[in-house]
């Protein structure tokens, strides 16, 4: 478990839209060990998808990565040219996207889209061999009659099957790291359970490290070893997976967990919703970006003026790194 698969340092990404600069990812650092499964949780606009694209070097103009180191298997890939990155993408680090209906090219066969993932890194492979390998991949993601179904088009597959194909494409070259951006959000609950089980099996077999991006804390609990809560482009709390459910220390983490409908708390009246809206990433408040909505720091000058640094705290379910001025105090309170 100690070998590092991916190490991200001080990653920042902006979208420069002429009039305003949107800070989508702000100075994010983390390590991902071999076979680790990191869940990145956040709401829409928290920068979690921009983070995924930044790591892969796929931020398109007007966006750009302004700073940061991305060390993959001992090599900093952040300074590579697009051509050099091409040899890394799909080979050492791969991507699965949310919507299986738009993640596949509608006018190309399933087979050709899998084949492409193989031949781009091994152009000399013989045709028959590539096709055989593509069929194997389909079988690996539990699609029956694989040979025949290679020649189908995406619209002939169900949503769940398309997502399996997307996974097959991602694991085609046995990548060191798999980034899955909301991979089950568009699927039915029962299909979601199956896709998670499939991911389970594959990443165990291939010893792949996974970054699972989701807005669903339940999926984090079901799949991940560690978790990072993302708010306004920053990781505001990172910890082992149990910590966040046992002792959510950042007020945002706690609020996010509490506003999930829980029938047990029916008697407690209305859901404890988070007031206000996520901040405009082009006009971030000085100080803590959660301060205007924060039940703890809303009225405290310190929170509005001074950006909190990460505090390492230790709670009943392990250690955590929390960007809150009151992290130590809060972990004592929640850890009763």
């Amino acid at each position: 478990m100690d070998e590092l698969a991916l190490s991200v340092r001080n990653l920042s990404t902006v979208y420069d839209t002429g009039g305003s600069v949107v800070h989508a990812v702000r100075d994010v650092s983390f390590d991902l060990r071999r076979t680790e499964r990191l869940g990145v949780v956040g709401e829409s606009g928290s920068g979690k998808s921009a983070l995924a694209l930044s790591i892969l070097g796929l931020i398109e103009p007007p966006g750009r990565v302004v700073e940061g180191e991305i060390v993959l298997g001992g090599r900093d890939i952040s300074k590579l040219s697009d051509r050099q990155l091409g040899a890394v993408r799909g080979k050492e680090i791969a991507l699965v996207l949310q919507d299986p209906s738009s993640a596949l090219d509608p006018v190309k066969t399933i087979g050709s889209q899998i084949v492409e993932a193989l031949t781009v890194h091994e152009p000399d492979l013989r045709r028959a061999a590539v096709r055989r390998r593509a069929a194997e991949l389909l079988r690996e993601v539990d699609i029956s009659q694989a040979e025949r179904r290679l020649d189908d088009y995406p619209h002939q597959y169900s949503g769940g099957m398309r997502q399996r194909v997307a996974i097959a494409i991602a694991i085609a070259n046995n990548p060191r790291v798999l980034i899955a951006d909301e991979p089950t959000t568009a699927l039915d609950v029962t299909t979601q359970a199956q896709v998670l089980a499939l991911l389970d099996r594959l990443v165990d077999e291939h010893r792949t490290a996974v970054i699972l991006i989701t807005h669903n804390l339940g999926i984090v609990s079901d799949f991940c070893d560690s978790v990072a809560v993302m708010y306004a482009g920053r990781f505001v709390e990172t910890s082992g997976v149990d910590h966040i459910f046992v002792a959510p220390t950042h007020p945002y983490s706690e609020a996010l967990l509490k506003c999930v409908p829980n029938p047990e708390r029916l008697a407690e009246g209305p859901l404890p919703a988070i007031s206000g809206f996520p901040p405009d990433l082009s006009q971030l408040p000085s100080g803590c970006s959660f301060a205007p909505r924060c039940p703890v720091g809303r009225d405290l000058p310190q929170c509005h003026e001074q950006a909190p640094v990460p505090h390492r705290v230790s709670g009943p379910a392990g250690e955590a790194s929390v960007e809150c001025h009151f992290a130590e105090q809060r972990i004592r309170e929640v850890a009763v």
């Binding site: 979601q192 079901d222 997976v241 149990d242």
Partner: peptide, 9 residues
């Protein structure tokens, strides 16, 4: 249905 509680896996 995944449940946001510790020990989900």
């Amino acid at each position: 249905v995944p449940v946001p509680l510790a020990g989900g896996r």
